[in-house]
Amino acid sequence: MARWLKPGVFALSLMPLAWLAWRAFSDDLGVNPVETINRTTGDWALRFLLLALAVTPLRRVTGWAPLARLRRMVGLFAFFYVCLHLASYVGLDLFFDWQALLKDVAKRTYITLGMGCFVLLLPLAVTSTDGMIRRLGGRAWRRLHRLVFPASVLAVAHFWLMVKADIREPLLYAVILSLLLGSRLWRRGRA
C-alpha cells in the first residue's frame, strides 16, 4: 500500500485542476468565469497548505511512517495552486495591469497579505530539493521551513479579509489551522 501512496496522492492532487480545466473546456465556469477560476485556485491553495501542515500530526497520531514521504509533495502542490491563483489574479483578473497590481498590493490589506504569503512560500519551494537540504544543512533548512507557519496564517487572513460578510468558510479554515498549529505548540510545551 505504501508503494502506491505517493503516486496515488500525486494523481489525486491534480484532480482539482483537472476538474477546473474540464469545466473551462465545457463552458461550465458559471456567470463570472474569472471569479470562478480565482476562487477555485485560491480555495485549493489554502486547502493544500493546510493538508501539508496536517501530514506530520497525522503521522504522529496514526504512527504510520510512510505518511512522512507525502509532506514535501503536498507542500509543493500547495505552492503549485498558490502560483495558479496568483497567475489567475494577475493574468485574468487584472489582465497584466502592473500598475493596478502595485496599487492593490500597497493599498489592499488582503492582497498585501496574500502576496506576503507567496513571498514566504517561494524560498520554501526553491529549497525543497534533496540537494538544497544538503547544501543548507538540516538545521538551517528546518528553521527556514518554519516560514510555512506564518505563511499559512497569512493565507487564512487573506481569505478572511476578502469575504464580504459571511465569514463561516474562512472561520472553518481558521479553526483547522489553529488546531494544526496548536497541536505543535502543545507538543513543544510537553517536551
Binding site: 456567470v31 463570472n32 474569472v34 471569479e35 485574468l92 483578473d93 487584472l94 489582465f95 493596478a100 496599487k103 492593490d104 493599498k107 489592499r108 490589506t109 488582503y110 479579509l161 476578502m162
Partner: peptide, 19 residues
Amino acid sequence: VDHPRWSQATERRIGEFRR
C-alpha cells in the same frame, strides 16, 4: 472613492473578459 478593501475604479461587466 474605493471600498476600504478593494478598488472601485474598474468593474467586470458580466459576459466580458477585460475590466
